[in-house]
Design a protein around this nucleic acid. Sequence first.
DNA 1: AATCCTGAGCTTTTT
DNA 2: GCTCAGGATT
Length: 737
Amino acid sequence: MSDLLANLNPEQLLAVTLPPQHALVLAGAGSGKTRVLTTRIAWLIQTGQVSPQGILAVTFTNKASREMLARLSTMLPAGLGHNARSIWMGTFHGLCNRLLRTHHREAGLPQLFQILDSADQLAAIKRMLKTLNVDDEKFPPRDLQHFINAQKEAGHRPHAVDVWDDYTRRRVELYTEYEAQCQRESVVDFAELLLRSYELLERNEPLRRHYQQRFRHILVDEFQDTNRLQYRWLKLLADEGRDGGAWLFCVGDDDQSIYRFRGAEVGNMRDFEREFKVSNVIRLEQNYRSWGNILDAANAIIRHNTDRLGKSLWTERGSGEPLRVFEAFNDGDEARWVVEEIQSLVRDGMSRADIALLYRSNAQSRVLEHQLFSSGIPYRVYGGLRFFERQEIKHALAYLRLIANPDDDTAFARVVNFPTRGIGARSLEVLQDAARTWQGSLYASVPHLAGKPGTVLGQFVRLIEDMRRDTRELPLPELVDHVLDASGLRAHYKSDKEGQERLENLDELINAAANFVAEMGADGEALAQPHALLADFLAHASLEAGEHQADAGTEAVQLMTVHSAKGLEFDAVFLTGLEEGLFPHENSILERDGLEEERRLMYVAVTRARERLYLSFAQSRMLHGQVRYNLRSRFLEEIPEGLTKWLSVPSARGRGAGFGGYFEPSRSPRVAAAPSPAQPSRDLGGLRVGQQVKHARFGQGVIVAAEGGGADARVQVNFGSAGLKWLLLAVAKLEAC
DNA sequence: AATCCTGAGCTTTTT
DNA sequence: GCTCAGGATT
């Protein structure tokens, strides 16, 4: 016990040992948040205040959940009946899945319902639009998907949607139809997992009471990332502190809320504080990660945001080095500089894996990758396809889904002709019609067909039925193995000269199945029913997309967006592309509170660095096929001068003073990397970035960016109160002044 | 059924 | 400028 609490700082100790009450912990970056959460769970259990079964722990990613479980297992001595695994721990979606499987009847679902990931959902929507002959130009599938998810996250079934125009009325009809289709096919999308289980708990009082009494303590990680529905879900179980509900222990950081675009609602933190009458918010402000200068910069930046709960990071470590700033001539030049610095860091003994290259948007990785590649530096890019999202894996899963649930039309449509077996668009159209007439799934409608479609489709149905029969007794990994052969997927990729990697991935799927069974190990009962276990495995595949791209060697520099860097830390961080329009991103400037979210993103980026932070920007950069001239980011200006050291001489004082001179950095001999391209010659009619201009209607302004050339030449002008405008030089009469 | 071609989109991402 | 999806072409 004393072991458990040793080395906690006073605030951490306070949070860990807080008596039963609703609590909000504001945990700054690098303040030991996960440690507090896991230690609190261990403390609650070890002091006998609650049994593991009485704890519900919610995380945002499966990765976080696994890490927490692993740390907890080392904290709880086994054998005392304190099995960390009997804690209900997982993501909101994982927990909802568990709830819905257990009470599928009450929730109105078959036991073997399948889960659609976003891509599956989009495919389902496209299929629906096609069936209904809806013009997908008028109702773009992506928009509709977004609309439906937004409604579900607001807790609205179709009848509850506010209809304010004909367009929305039609969208609501499509929402209704989509729901019907999902129900028919026994599939559930991500938002549905949440809404269904929310409704289940809300409407079924005995069930709600049961869980309210079972869970004494609910602990929520990354609380600033919860959406409205998730918060309501928590409220249902906590019952706002009235008798019977659980105590909520929410940990989060409003300054690191960067997912508003996907529904996260920072306001939940304030609401929680108010609605649950949280009396003392605990702040974890001592940082164990970074040098003081880095924290000072982060604090200075985030101070520009209003509407914060308020927090300031500090450290017992010293100030460390100044932040290094580099102004590049263009994006390629920036990449060359990054590579040189990396080489120098590695020469000095830093591990490449401890170096991260961060950028605002994925498109920026290309130039960096190119430069790393030609310099022979191993690197690893995060993002892109994950294991269970790969084409070959999706195909294999589709066969498995058909075995578990033949009514899954999404899976049916995906593989009915893959590998190709002569089932073309015509046959499928005939089948679609039949399905509509008979009000059944595609699979179930096949027997109603005659002629050639009936024959080829009949063969496919028989194939699936044979698979189901032949795998009934097989352990999961062998089941998967069998399906890979029987479906013809293996043969197909074997004959494909570029199918080698895909074949390896298919084998990896067997491993994934084996690992899954091993994880489930303790649960003996599930093993008795291979096809029930299969459904669990499929849910696992949907809920956990798996690791990002395979690693390109272990000792590799890490490239990722700032978003994906959240929660990670590195000895050295390169924060590239610090330019207006890029970071903060131009789209965010128009959004309400968009700039504040960008600033939080900047805050997240800066606090990733332990030892050394590099900040860079380029005077010009290729974007959307055109050279763009950007100002350096306002966020750079928000860092106090004393904390930075310029490696290049600033092009001019202040921002927007034009394309100043380009200087070789005075330090380390810089290879005269490919003769720098000549200064851009742009016909801006004697105008340049930074110049004051006058416009007949908007008045005085300053040119902040320029793009295009000749007849297309455009400039962006900041007219102050009149706003930021893009103006075509050929049209707008701008007067230099 | 495979391959070529055109055009739209282009910030961030987990579940 | 690059990628991806879907349509048109062979």
